[in-house]
Nucleic acid binder design. Structure first.
Lengths: 136, 136
DNA sequence: TTTCATACTTGTAACGATTACAAAATTGTA
DNA sequence: TACAATTTTGTAATCGTTACAAGTATGAAA
């Protein structure tokens, strides 16, 4: 059982109920939700929750490195709890986004054509294992 | 001198003046403009041009493979004329987006954790050659 | 060349994700 | 307990994009 209150403090974020709940959601569901998905999910529990709070909180979390902000291919920002290096795979059939632990650390701090690489984002598209299996 | 009219026909797109001008722009400036940037640029020449036309045209071009649609990290769609395999590097200082010809064809049709990879998109961030040089 | 159906373009209105902002509520601390 | 600072809230605004309907242009058939 993770102490999310402590986790937030360690990152210099004063833990409020809203912040704890949002972080808890990101941890428990470990998917790649949008701000709106999180907002909808927490509405039951916290009827007065404001969408603005969700947006502000997620942005703050990402800035402090508590979570990761993703811009995949649908023109909406998504967030995830998993901050370890990994890449993303999106299935074009079922639209599920998978984390792939394969890392490309070789790219880190590499120099390409004189440019210094600080971050790399890799996004794969294709057909996932499940969809391939059920195709047969 | 490229015959853009012919190029469009070859891709099954009836060439109108608007379409030719938009394609010409993408070719001549070979950057990664948004629909709005293209719209602003062509306004002088074609005062009656509609933004809807620009959006529709770009989407059609991308579907037929005349150009490439990019979703980089700013939550707006960008387009480019360069359809050859390459990756993108964005400088965090000057915000310029560079094409890097280094390709990762090794990823093509690869199988990762049972998933079949059909497309891969690689996006690097860092400090570009120019900005590094001028830092000294 | 004229006619006409089809396809293209235009402009406005609407949409969805996100942000700005000010007021209300909460918090930690003195 | 009191108060200043921070957080949350709700509404309105913004920005990129799309829907839609009306107007315009096009190209093939007569």
């Amino acid at each position: 059982m993770i102490d999310f209150k402590e986790l937030l403090k360690e990152h210099g974020i004063p833990p409020s109920l809203q912040r704890i709940k949002i972080l808890e959601y990101l941890h428990d569901f470990n998917t790649h939700p949008t701000a709106d998905v999180i907002y909808q999910a927490l509405m039951n529990e916290m009827p007065t929750l404001s969408k603005t709070t969700v947006y502000n909180t997620l942005k703050a979390f990402a800035e402090k490195g508590v979570i990761v902000e993703l811009s995949l291919f649908e023109n909406e920002v998504r967030y995830e709890y998993n901050t370890t290096p990994h890449i993303h795979f999106k299935c074009i059939k079922c639209n599920i986004i998978y984390d792939i632990s394969e890392s490309f650390e070789c790219l880190k701090n590499k120099e390409i054509e004189g440019h210094k690489v600080l971050e790399h984002h890799i996004y794969l598209k294709g057909i996932c294992k499940n969809c391939r299996d059920s195709e047969e």
